[in-house]
Amino acid sequence: MAKKRQILVIGHNTKGCLPKHEKIAYEIGAEIAKSDSVLICGGLGGVMIAAAHGAKDAGGLTIGIIPQNDPAEANEYCDIVIPTGMGLARDFLNALSADGVIIVGGGSGTLSETCAAYMHKKPMVAIRNLDSSVDPFIGGYLDHRENIKIVGVDTPQEAIKKILELISP
């Protein structure tokens, strides 16, 4: 059996997460499940719970890598919970566990995960026009190294299509 693709969805936690972010994340989660990929998220609220909910509703497998040490802290849509007890350092585990990353809005935590993925040259796709910390970098690079371009898309369907193109051999 071949390894399943693992797609990380990152974005706003509960604070700052608007209904439009939740709707987009839910649809992305469902599309990940339909593509027979595994959804990875930070396992908490906001974009994370919405994406996991969408993946579960579409029959997919979900993994939540949480910063706390108690697995009960994860949202109810996580099939597999990895309680790291590492706080925000878990952002690196999230990025390194993924074959590709989809970004739905977000603040400094999302930017931290984006930087971790960038340093390890993980393909990334970001939904445009969500007023996030990543917006200035969509269509370009985070720095002079030009490790990996952050590709901008407009819809959840485009996000899945593009990330699958980028991570397929």
Rank of each mutant, 00 (worst) to 15 (best):
A95K: 03
V47D: 00
T114V: 04
E113V: 04
M48E: 14
D131G: 13
G29H: 14
K122H: 01
G54C: 11
A159C: 08
E76S: 11
E31Q: 06
A50Y: 12
A33D: 09
V81R: 00
I40F: 11
A58S: 10
D135C: 07
G106I: 01
T84Y: 01
A30C: 11
L142A: 05
C17M: 13
T110N: 10
G59F: 10
Y141E: 08
V38D: 06
E76D: 13
I127F: 07
E31S: 15
L8K: 09
K15M: 02
D135W: 04
I167M: 05
G105Q: 03
I63T: 13
T114Y: 03
E31N: 15
K162N: 11
I66K: 04
K161M: 01
P123F: 00
A58F: 08
M119Y: 09
P136I: 08
I66T: 10
A126Q: 00
I163L: 04
K23N: 13
A25G: 10
G60Y: 03
I150Y: 09
L61Q: 09
V81Y: 04
K161E: 14
M119E: 12
G43K: 04
T84C: 11
Y26H: 15
P169L: 06
Q157D: 07
C78A: 14
H21D: 00
E31M: 01
S132V: 06
V47C: 13
A50I: 02
L111F: 00
S133M: 13
P156R: 09
A98I: 02
K121Q: 14
I66C: 06
P67K: 11
Q68A: 14
I138Y: 07
I10W: 05
K56L: 08
L166I: 10
A50M: 06
K4H: 12
K3W: 03
I102Q: 00
T110Y: 07
S97H: 07
M124F: 05
A89C: 03
A55N: 07
L39K: 06
N94M: 05
D143M: 09
S35P: 12
A159W: 02
F137Y: 15
I127H: 08
L88R: 06
I24F: 09
K122E: 05
G64H: 13
I102N: 10
P83Y: 03
C17K: 01
Q68C: 03
G11L: 13
V81G: 02
A159V: 01
E165N: 01
K15Y: 06
G107I: 05
K23R: 06
L61E: 15
I32A: 06
E22V: 02
D131K: 10
H12D: 14
T110F: 03
A58I: 02
L111T: 00
V151F: 07
G45Y: 13
G85Q: 02
E165I: 08
K4F: 08
F92C: 07
G11E: 10
A50E: 07
S35I: 12
L88E: 12
K122R: 10
I80S: 03
G139W: 09
V125P: 09
D70V: 12
Q6L: 03
H21P: 00
I7Q: 00
R5M: 13
L111N: 12
A126W: 00
A52C: 11
V104T: 04
K34N: 04
S168E: 05
C78M: 11
D36Q: 10
I24S: 06
I24M: 09
A55D: 11
I82A: 04
A116Y: 08
A30V: 09
G140T: 15
N94L: 15
K20E: 15
G100Y: 07
C17N: 04
G106W: 06
C78E: 07
E27F: 03
